[in-house]
Amino acid sequence: MLTKRIIACLDVDAGRVVKGTQFLNLRDAGDPAELAAAHSAAGADELVLLDITATHERRATLLETVRRTALELFVPFTVGGGVRTLEDAGAIFDAGADKISINSAAIADSSLITCIAQRFGSQAVIVAIDAKRNGNGFQAWTSGGRVRSEKDAVLWAKEAEDRGAGEILLTSMDRDGTGAGFDCELTRAISQTVRIPVIASGGAGSAEDFVHVFREGAADAALAASIFHFGLSSISDLKRHLLVAGIPMRFPC
């Protein structure tokens, strides 16, 4: 049976893992390569490394961090932040990543999705959507949550799929870093609109939040960062909890 995935996310700034609350208030949490290896050993189904300041400061993703992190990692590894061109993506794949995640650059020019998918395959292209509630709907934001785009998040997810995206990484900006739980309504709206897998992100505060996002949110995978870094729970504890709740999990890992 296909399991639901638990994806550990490392938000990286200047080569260090950090985690903020609602995209602000950064706190230092350690070395990316060490944390990636620890998460993988503890049962993380995938690793995502997001260079959270790359778009803002317009600098290339830290390829050396990617290379060092990828070296001894034998589960799927995604890198996002600052990917603007096919060449940016190619350099990240050469450094050892399996997938890239694109956000701002895809919104600015959605043909970039097609371009990378045609060269490296759709399975290698994740379109990240930072969504924020807006009346009854959801709006997509760019540049690490600093700029509001004109795109409706649900319609944009569908467009990204049509352009060749292999997965959607959906972050609720309203919930991110709050520990108040995933936005299941947002996740479900997008998961039911697209045929590609949806990774839910933002708001995880307890193991029960993951149960909800898989059941009510119809998520295919869920991403979490701070819940692990600050010892709130271990991945194996989380996966055991989910398994007992009837959610299919890769276990033992």
Partner: peptide, 9 residues
């Protein structure tokens, strides 16, 4: 859903 992405037995 397609593609089939993830860990299966």
């Amino acid at each position: 859903k397609s593609p089939h992405v993830g860990w299966n037995s």
